[in-house]
Design a protein around this nucleic acid. Structure first.
Length: 200
DNA sequence: GTGAAGATTAACT
DNA sequence: GTTAATCTTCACA
């Protein structure tokens, strides 16, 4: 079943923990693609130097994060990649969750066509890659995840005990003390992670 | 209007 | 491990 608004209205860290193992669904004119969420990172604008909305900085780009949870925050990075976030928290609480890796479930042929690669395991194992495989671009910015085009569903699958782990985030070395926040959530035994499990 | 930097990826040494 | 590709967004004039 599709996740409801109330699921997203909670704290980003709480939502993150429960979002691992859920299924991202994108319905397009080319077909439907689905992928299980195996790696995500939480960003909290009020205290997190790594967040675009750090210091409650409100710009045209981060505007959607200040609304209620349950909306898509898409941004373009390094001139060639899109990244998708799920906005969480209540209104005026700039929090979001970056989707870093998915396990392809449905529409895999369509993903391969978009990605031009034959290896299923590398189809969605990175923020930029999963967006391309899922057909997500700027036109998805601000979409309501409680709508019927781009949303997250719970298919009843559950991670085994201790399988959801937290680690430090990736590629935010400029964020000073925030680099040590354990806000990356992963499915420990998934072969679809963007990087190998760091040593603990 | 202009310039610098980036929540990445793929290719190369 | 290092680096180029490539362009939106943001800060400042």
């Amino acid at each position: 079943m599709k996740l409801e608004r109330s699921f997203y209205m909670r704290d980003a860290l709480t939502v993150s923990r429960e979002l691992v193992g859920k299924v991202l669904v994108h319905e397009t004119s080319d077909g439907i693609t689905k992928g299980r969420i195996v790696e995500i990172e939480a960003y909290k604008g009020d205290i997190d130097k790594a967040a675009h909305s750090y210091g409650r900085k409100r710009t045209e780009r981060t505007e959607i994060q200040f609304g209620p949870g349950g909306y898509a925050y898409i941004y373009f990075i390094y001139g060639m990649h899109f990244c998708m976030n799920v906005v969480t928290g209540a209104k005026n609480s700039p929090e979001a969750i970056l989707l870093r890796a998915l396990e392809p479930l449905d529409g895999i042929a369509l993903m391969e066509e978009r990605r031009k690669t034959g290896r299923k395991s590398s189809l969605c194992n990175g923020p930029g890659k999963l967006c391309r495989a899922m057909g997500i671009d700027k036109s998805c910015y601000g979409l309501d995840l409680c709508g019927n085009r781009l949303y997250v569903e719970d298919d009843g699958w559950e991670a085994g005990p201790g399988k959801v782990m937290t680690t430090k985030r990736i590629n935010i070395d400029y964020a000073e003390e925030a680099v040590d926040f354990p806000w990356r959530f992963i499915l420990a035994d998934s072969p679809y992670l963007s990087k190998r499990l760091p040593k603990l």
